[in-house]
Every structure is written in structure tokens, then in C-alpha cells.
Design a protein around this nucleic acid. Sequence first.
DNA 1: TAATATAGTGTAAACGATTACATCACCATT
DNA 2: AATGGTGATGTAATCGTTTACACTATATTA
Lengths: 336, 336
Amino acid sequence: MTNIKDVAKAAGVSTATVSRVLANTDVRVRPETRERVLKAISDLGYRPNLVARSLRVQKTAKIGLVVSDIRNPFFTAVSRAVEDAAYEEGYSVLMCNTDENPDKEALYLNVLHDENVAGVIFSPTHQFSERLNAYISNIPFVIIDRAVKSRNVDMVLLDNGPAAYDLTIHLIENGCRKIAGLFGNASTTGQERNRGFNKALKDNQLSPLATHFIPPRILQGYETALALLAQNEKPDAIFTSNSMLTAGALQAIRDAKLSVPEDIALVGFDETTWGALVEPPITVIAQPTEEIGRTATELLFQRIADPTRSPKTVILNGELHIRGSSIRQREQIHAN
Amino acid sequence: MTNIKDVAKAAGVSTATVSRVLANTDVRVRPETRERVLKAISDLGYRPNLVARSLRVQKTAKIGLVVSDIRNPFFTAVSRAVEDAAYEEGYSVLMCNTDENPDKEALYLNVLHDENVAGVIFSPTHQFSERLNAYISNIPFVIIDRAVKSRNVDMVLLDNGPAAYDLTIHLIENGCRKIAGLFGNASTTGQERNRGFNKALKDNQLSPLATHFIPPRILQGYETALALLAQNEKPDAIFTSNSMLTAGALQAIRDAKLSVPEDIALVGFDETTWGALVEPPITVIAQPTEEIGRTATELLFQRIADPTRSPKTVILNGELHIRGSSIRQREQIHAN
DNA sequence: TAATATAGTGTAAACGATTACATCACCATT
DNA sequence: AATGGTGATGTAATCGTTTACACTATATTA
């Protein structure tokens, strides 16, 4: 591969001059020298070696994106937004899936550190939240989706409590009284949404028919919902805290030959391709995934530029998208 | 940050010895020296700088993954498989979304080259297929999903023609005669699936009611399907070549107040979360995404290990998952 | 005219690892 | 006792950049 020395030789200048032309800053190079260098570069098809540059300047144009599973539609969408925002600034994105496993989280964070990434966008398990401080000092961080205890780090979060509250109130207003909740057990998000859920019920002199904290996977949602529906006292609504659980619950309702929303209402979090396509379409809290990803990336770049700037927490609002899965006719309400 | 010199000093040895301990190969170090070095490493919390190592050994433990859009469920699933397989070998994955844009493809390929990635897994647009040869010489490549002309590169593909053939035959066997096809216009995949589609029709003395090559996006699928359904001669089935188009078509059918499969059957490619959840569930060709990702990654590692080994093309089989969206009762068939 | 500023360029030292080669001590062989 | 082999370690070059500093030639100023 051709390197900067080859270019320097071809242009009859020193490597320093080539580098100065490359840098394209305000350092002055005589226009005619610059021309010669540029010609040599294009003649030789020279492209600077980014690894060498990174070593010298002690930073890379890469950021790490650490999430539990890219296949969760929420993270899919956020990833794409992060990649777009990073791309615009000339940064690349290293993708890391942790499967909610704290050891894998630690391992990836170490690798990213060793790779000298400029920063990390991270959605940690609640277990990891404790250990986080050890890492924050090393690398610029932005936490997304899941709050951590440390006040010492940038975060981009959803208004989980109020959103869950609104979603639950919506169910109550539609006549649901026996509401079961399915919450992810790996994140703080599940806990916060659970609190909003409980508060809404309490404010209406209700209490949850059942509350389950389970792994955020379709299968677990399915099995848990199926068990709920087999009980003597069946719920008249299921509230889910993420789209994997929603999908599982929906499948369970189908398999139990119940109909939505007549027999049972179903609501959840996160807009997905299928949420509007199923019959009836699902009422959800839509998260602004694009904005979350973009904001996180911008915050990260700000922190990279100024590591001492005081940390910010940006809280974005979920949007209640009311659809058929929760709209019960008056007769149905009275029938309860 | 502590570096190898600090460790050497702390252990009272040279950097060479530290490096030898780190390498952990068969190079012999006196056990008691090794102990001293390991102690120094752990005392100082030393972690080797991967950028420096990469520069010296002239290779990195990173691979690039270049796809059109990670939000396409097929690529989401493949990405995850690639990341898993890479992780097992200690490699990281750089994620690149090209939006079917050849310029963005070229740009990313250049960046990956400059980053000195060990290899690239790439799903190119058909436009790019021509330019590819310029890159193949530089970096180990594995092409996925979309065939390229060059016989000089590893590929992991689906048996698109036969799969589309089977899917079409299935429609015909279920009494469909006026079949319209929606195909992605960015990939060779769309073309190959179109050929299988046409052949199946021809073998049954039929011809397509309509054939559209359109951008692989939900909106385009929706609009095109809506137009089809507004025509005088309506199709009795829509065949789609990817899940974005399937979703769009389904929405269009819903909005046209037609019912599946009675008024119109719908089939497509790719298993998705929603495919089995909608009513009726959708008949699809399921691609073995996990196997595609894993095979591609393994092929890539083989090529990295031996750049001269002769290229392989692995063709995996799609699986026809028959569901309600294409099963018409006998009466319906006769009614046609 | 001498002193000084400035623009343009080159020299060489980093960055933090790996590794070819040299060195040294020790032991076995003749 | 001389020779050679071997095991353990150190020295220093190297990977391909960037950049502090030095240098030269020319322009500016007093």
C-alpha cells in the first residue's frame, strides 16, 4: 500500500508538507506545492491510514453503540439514527449486542476502551448501573433508554412514568378494571413504567390484577400471558412494557381464542412495523426513536469536544397512539 | 493511560518480554518472570492499546458490515448473526447503512479500507456490482444476499429463483390466476425472484397481471399495491419480494377494504415478527438469516486466514411457510 | 542597512505496540 | 578446554501518521 512517504517522494516534498495538505486547515502551504502534492496523491491513489493517524493523535473517529439486542425494534431504529448522525460527522459505529448480560457489557466496554473509541452510547442493564462509574472516567458516555444512578453522565431518556401512567389511564377510561402488567426485568425502564402503571391504578382505586417482571422476549411474554389467561380470574386488559412482550401477549390471546379488545384489551410500548398491521391495531406509547438516537449522538459529540461540560439529562416524551386494541364500545364497558 | 513501558518498568523487564507474556504463544518466558509481569499488569490495570497493535501488525480485529438498511428485518437478523459470529472470534463489527445508494457504498468501502478492517461483509446494489472488482483486490470480501457478476469472490445467497418459483406455484395451486408481482428494484435479488415468479406462471400457461420494480420501502409497496387494487382488472394475488413491500401491500389491501385471502391472496419473502401475528398470518419464504450471517462470517474468516483460497458460493434454501394468507377454500377457487 | 517578522518547508520525535536480531549465561558434547 | 546449542531476555527498528521545532528566504520596519 502506498503511504505518505511515497507521496512525499513523488511530489518532491517532505511528509510534513503532505500531512499539512491533507489536514487542510489554516496552516499555509504554497498553492503550487499544494497542487503538486494533490496530484501525487491522486496519481498514486493514496489514502491515509486511519490506524496510524489514530495512534498519533490518540483518538479515533469511531463510537461504540452498546445495546441489549439490535433485533429489538426500538434499538433497531435508534441504531439507525445513531449511525446516520455519526456518519454526518465522519464517525463510524461499532455495534455491540449484550443480551442483557452484565459480563458481556463489561467485556464490550473494555474492548471499546482498548480500541480507543471516541465515545460510547450505552443502554445498560440495571445490574450494570452500579459498576458504571468505573468506566465513566475513561470514556465519554451517553446513556440511553435506561436511567442510571450516577448523576455524572449524559442521558437521553423517555418520560417512562408519565407515559405508562397515560397508557394505563387510557385503559381505565375504556372500562378496563382487571389489568395485568408485563414488564421487562432487565432494565430500569421496566421498573419506571411499572411505577406509572401502579400510580394510575391507585389514583383510580384499583390495583393490578397481576404484575410480572420477565425477560423481554417474545416467548416469555407468550408464556406469561398464556398463564394469565388460564387463571380463574382473567384480566380484561394486558399492559406490556415493550414490544417483544406485546407480541408474545398478542399471540397468547390469539391462541386462547379470545378477541381483542372485546374480551381483553392490549397495549404496549414502542411503534413497530406490525403494530398498525395486526387486527385490531395495537395502542402504544410511541418512542421518538429517531430523536433519541440523534440527540444521544449529538450529546456524545458535545462531550467529546468538551469532556468537562456538565452532564445533561434529556427527557423526551412518548406519544400515545390510540388504536383499536384498547377502544371498547360502551356496551362492552357496561358488560363488565 | 498506562502503557507497555510502564509495565516493563514495574516488572523490571524489557517491553519485549511484556509483549511476549501478552502474546501468550509458545515463545518461552521464565515462569517466574511471567509472574512478575502478570502482577505488574494487574497492579497497573494495564490494557494493551489495540490501535498501536493494529498499526504494528498491519491488521485489525474488525470487520465491516455494509447493508442497505439495518431496519429491514432481514438485515437486522443477519447483522445480529454476524455480530455473534464475529464476537466469538474476538472481532468487532462496524455497521454501515447505504440506503441502496452506490455513492454511499463506495464511501463506506473506502472508509473501511482506511480503517484497515480485516474484511467486509457486503450486500451491494446491482449498480455497484460492476465497480466491485476494484475493491475486491484490496480487502477480503464476502457478498451476501445479492449475487454479483464477479466469480472472484465469496458469496452467501438464497436459492432465489426456485424459492420464488415454489411460492408462485403455491399461489397457483390455491386457485390464483391473476397474480401481480412487486419486486425490489435495488438488488439483483428482486430480479432473480422475478425470474422464478415468471417461470412458474409460464409453466402453467399464465402470465403476470402486473410486474413492478420499486424501491424496497413500505410506502412504495403501499402506493403501488393501492394503484393495482384500483384498476379495473384486480389481481387475485399479490406476490412481494421482500417484507417491506409485503407490509405496504397488506396495508393497501386493508385500506381497500378487501379481505385476505378471500378477495386477494398475499405472499412474500422473509420471516418477520409480524408475519405470524397479523390476521390472516402471511405465507412467506423464510430465509435462514442466522445461517446466512454465520456462514458469511465464517467464510470471511477463512478468506482472511488464506487470501488465496479459491472463492466459494454458498446457496442456502428458503423455506416455504404456508399460512392463512394464501390458503383459499375450494369454494373460493371455484368461484374464480 | 540592520534587525525583525513572516511564510513555507523540512527534520525528527513522538504515539504504543511487535519482533528480528543480538547478547548472554548455562549446559552438553567432543 | 574449546565448541556449539539452547533458553531467556534485551535492543532497537518498525508500522504510518502528526506536529513541535528549526531553518531559510523573503518582506517589513526603523
